[in-house]
Amino acid sequence: MSSLLIITGIASGILYGLMALAFTFLFRTAGIPNLAIGAMGTFVALLALKIYAPIGLPYWAGVLIAMLLGMAMGAASELLVFRRLRGADPLVFLVATIGLNLLLFGVAQYLWAANEPYRFPGAYSPSGTVIVDGLSPQAVAIFIATAVVLGLLSALLYRSQMGREIRAVAEDPAAAHAIGLSVARAHLIVWMLAAAIIGLAAILFAPLLLLDTSVLSLVMYKAMGAAVLGGLGSLVGAVVGGLLLGLIENLVVPFAPSARDAAAFVVIVLVLLLRPQGLFGRTQIKKI
């Protein structure tokens, strides 16, 4: 077992984890299972590339731009679509995000499919540099960014007034509204934050992935799996779930190279059977 596989596993695992974080955050606070993560990320990352590269701005400016674009896109999704659907069935949300995914994927294809895949200038200009075999500075940067995002998000959610409001709205929208909290505002903030994380994840991984218009959809499915693995609702669980998933599918490679994608999902199904609430989830008592 080479350390290379473990390092690649962790690197791709963090991508799943960061995406799963965005998925879990939105699902938990607004009840929306967002299947548009893949297309949103692709769209934001490519748009950011088109903005910062021609001007000659550094990569980190691009990261910032991507996060801002993500926020704008999250706000637009909430204001134009999901605000009008509030109170609808989970199925409606699911299909709405699938529709959004199709729409953004189509726009990305129309605008950028001709020249794909795109090569992003990485965080450190000689993009070939490695610290250890398989571990690039970019991967380290991603690792740090994920830890920071997780920390900030947890602090925001559990240590600030805004976080308390968001949690109150997530727990019981009617009661939160009754005590004067704005459900609309909480959902808007949540959407903007979740979409900013999606943008961040997409642009951080673009230099490693050779971004094309469809590569992030498989990542999105894995991220969903990671979120479920971590027990939908636990932010730490999402990141750990992503890491586990990345490790498992890379460690399977020496034994059965073609079983890479299947292995990850077999593990998810097994975990669900043993712990239906996921690794970090709590069992919820249903109210009648």
Partner: peptide
């Protein structure tokens, strides 16, 4: 891309 755009 028009097809996914329209359907989405």
């Amino acid at each position: 891309g028009l097809y996914p755009i329209l359907f989405g």
